[in-house]
């Protein structure tokens, strides 16, 4: 392969993984855990998928690990956040399903709104409104896409035109992972903007220092 193309692919992947790592880092995971999950998604994407029925499977990197992360986040969340995240997930799934039906099929019709951005935007907004948290947005985005895959599978079965589906089949580059990371990025921007607006500089600086201190302690505990 042409050296330029190889470099382009490598840099694209590295930048994507870099952003992905910083995004997962915001889920109250340590740096190492976030890196481990990201590597797991990357490697898992190349492993054979797990098949449950004839036409239904799940990819380890793109489906199983994000799903496991969602379960972990839900278990660790407080009751109120857990409930809101589940509501946000269901609403996101239904809204995405509706949007995907009424949005034009070709991205050329959607101006700047590629369907993938629509999914992430919906999940980010719903997750933030209901959960007011980054975790809520991530859960809503991942579950929104997974539930939509199940909806599509069911719809095809009902229409008598079964089509195989592999949840998270594109591995770390699947819409499940991309939507999760993008929604985190969006909430981060919303959140930071809100904090900029609502918190006075001094209070905010103190909060930032406390957060950094907590993160550092968390990292050292995991060493």
């Amino acid at each position: 392969m042409n050296i330029g193309i190889s470099v382009l692919i490598a840099v694209s992947i590295l930048i994507f993984l870099g952003f992905g790592h910083r995004a997962l880092d915001r889920l109250q995971l340590t740096d190492k855990t976030a890196l481990l999950i990201l590597v797991g998604m990357l490697v898992g994407g190349f492993l054979p998928e797990l098949s449950f029925f004839n036409d239904f499977g799940i990819n380890i990197g793109g489906g199983l690990i994000p799903l496991a992360l969602v379960v972990y986040l839900l278990v660790k969340a407080e009751a109120w956040e857990r409930g809101r995240s589940i509501i946000a997930s269901l609403l996101t799934a239904f809204i995405i399903y509706g949007l995907m039906k009424i949005l034009p099929v070709e991205p050329t019709y959607n101006m700047a709104l590629d369907p993938l951005f629509v999914i992430a935007l919906t999940a980010g907004v719903m997750g933030y409104i209901f959960g007011r948290s980054r975790r809520g947005a991530f859960i809503a985005a991942v579950m929104g896409v997974i539930l939509n895959d199940i909806f599509a599978f069911t719809e095809n079965m009902a229409a008598g035109a079964p089509a195989p589906i592999v949840i998270g089949g594109a591995g770390v580059f699947d819409a499940i992972v991309l939507a999760g990371i993008l929604s985190l990025g969006m909430v981060e921007v919303f959140g930071e903007t809100l904090e900029r607006i609502t918190l006075a500089g001094k209070d905010r600086k103190m909060e930032e220092e406390n957060r950094n201190k907590d993160n550092t302690e968390g990292d050292e505990k995991n060493d």
Binding site: M100, P107, P115, L116, I119, A152, A159, F173
Partner: peptide
């Protein structure tokens, strides 16, 4: 030979999985 139906805006998301799967063959 996947059709990636239903024919909606999510089709590219579904075909993305097909493309990524086939990319493992290292095509030109």
């Amino acid at each position: 030979n996947e059709t990636h139906v239903p024919h909606d805006a999510n089709a590219y998301q579904r075909s993305r999985r097909t493309a990524e799967e086939l990319l493992k063959e290292n095509p030109i």
